[in-house]
Amino acid sequence: MKKLLLVEDNEMNRDMLSRRLERRGYQVLIAIDGAQGIAEATRHLPDLIIMDMSLPVLDGWESTRRLKEQNETKTIPVLALTAHAMAGERDKALAAGCDDYDTKPVDFTRLLGKIENLLPGAGAVA
C-alpha cells in the first residue's frame, strides 16, 4: 500500500481528502502545519507528500524547500496545493522544489491523476 502524507491545516479539507484517498487504497498520514509535516515526513518517509501552501508555523514553500534539502526526504515527490486565485503561487511552488501542483478547490479525479503520475513505479496502486 502506498503511503501518502497530507499536510493541510483546514480540518474539513483534511478529513475529506484523507477519506477519499483511503477509499482509493492509499494509506494516508496527516500533518496540520509545515513543521509537523517535515517531522512526519522524516519519521515515516512516505511515497508522496501532498502539501497545502498556506500553512501555519512554517508555510508550504519553506517546508518544501527544507524537505528538498534533507538527504533522507529530498527524493520524495511533493504535490503542492495552491489557491486558484493566486496566479503567482504555482510558480513559487515549483520554484520552492515542488514536483507538481494542483489548485484548490480540488478536482479529485485530476488530483488522483497527478498523484499516480508522481508515485515511484507510476500507477501501481495496491
Binding site: M12, N13, M16, K104, P105, V106, F108
Partner: peptide, 9 residues
Amino acid sequence: NAIIGYSEL
C-alpha cells in the same frame, strides 16, 4: 470546497 468534496465522497 468542503461541500463539493463531501458530496462527491
